[in-house]
């Protein structure tokens, strides 16, 4: 339950309000699974749940991509290398990638929702032969709000890999797609019968993605989503993250879509 003090190794600016920073894993690191999260503290300010966005193949470091939206995240993104933060975790259910071997992997992300999906990409790339095609559909507000742009570009040159991006507002210099992430489906090449989809983004976006996936002939049982709720404890005691019968912190954040689809359709649940 107690946080461990961890030293910030590197901070990298992603967008105007989003930073990726790397901390030394406490005690050398016990590893994490793609999709898990940590509780990060700035002592005296507070604590927030943050997805791990780094490579599970490098367990000695923990990488987080944080968007500054409140006092804790603002304090987090202003940490500098050499400074200390508090880390608890990792917590939560992960993308069930080991069980998805042999399948095409379709990743659909919106905004900062790409952060908890990046470890899944690293995981698949390290075991490339175990999976079929890797398709990543990513929607952001604007080109300036896109995360990991260089990396996305580099991945797009890999064999059997398709990276598609779109933005809500393009601006004059944008040559790419404009529109919500579901508009990318018509360009995505995957075989619905042998694909598993991993989805993370705003809930409204995920609802439309689930609908689109079903239209494309995918079974809901092959779809996983990562949910977000307020969290204080991360171990099911504080009550904040309830989603109907589920505690997002310990039953999720990654859920089989079939378990939460009805709940996602309930406004203000």
């Amino acid at each position: 339950m107690l946080p461990q003090a961890s030293r910030v190794i590197a901070v990298e600016r992603e967008t105007r309000d989003t930073f990726t920073f790397t901390v030394a894993a406490p005690g050398g690191g016990s590893g994490f699974a793609p999709g898990q999260f940590s509780m990060l503290s700035v002592f005296g300010v507070g604590e927030a749940p943050i997805s791990i966005s780094g490579d599970p193949g490098e367990p000695d470091r923990l990488v987080y991509t944080v968007r500054s939206v409140g006092p804790v995240t603002q304090a987090l993104v202003t940490r500098r290398p050499g400074e200390w933060i508090g880390v608890r975790g990792p917590f939560g259910a992960s993308w069930p990638l080991a069980a998805l071997r042999g399948k095409d992997i379709l990743i659909v992300a919106g905004g900062i929702g790409l952060a908890p999906l990046r470890p899944a990409v690293y995981y698949v790339l390290r075991r490339r032969g175990d999976y079929g095609r890797l398709v990543l559909l990513y929607g952001a507000r604007s080109p300036q709000d896109m995360l990991y742009r260089k990396q996305l570009s580099a991945w797009s040159y890999l064999p059997d890999t398709q990276i598609l991006t779109t933005v809500d507002y393009g601006g004059l210099s944008w040559r790419g797609h404009v529109g919500v992430v579901t508009t990318l489906f018509r360009y995505a090449r995957f075989d619905a019968q042998r694909t598993a989809a991993l989805v993370c983004g705003p809930e409204v976006m995920m609802r439309f993605v689930l609908r689109e996936l079903e239209t494309r002939g995918m079974a809901l049982s092959d779809v996983y989503v990562s949910m977000e709720r307020n969290m204080k404890c991360a171990v099911g005691f504080c009550g904040h993250c309830q989603l109907g019968p589920h505690f997002v912190c310990k039953d999720g954040p990654v859920f089989p879509a079939a378990r939460v689809k009805r709940l996602m359709e309930r406004y203000e649940l």
Binding site: S41, F43, G44, G46, E47, C238, G239
Partner: peptide, 26 residues
Amino acid sequence: CFCVTVEDTSDVTGSHAERWRLWDSC
């Protein structure tokens, strides 16, 4: 009812901080 929240406090110098757990309500 078991819901709780947490609150951080610090002294003015920033050399001492505490985290408290408080009852919360849905």
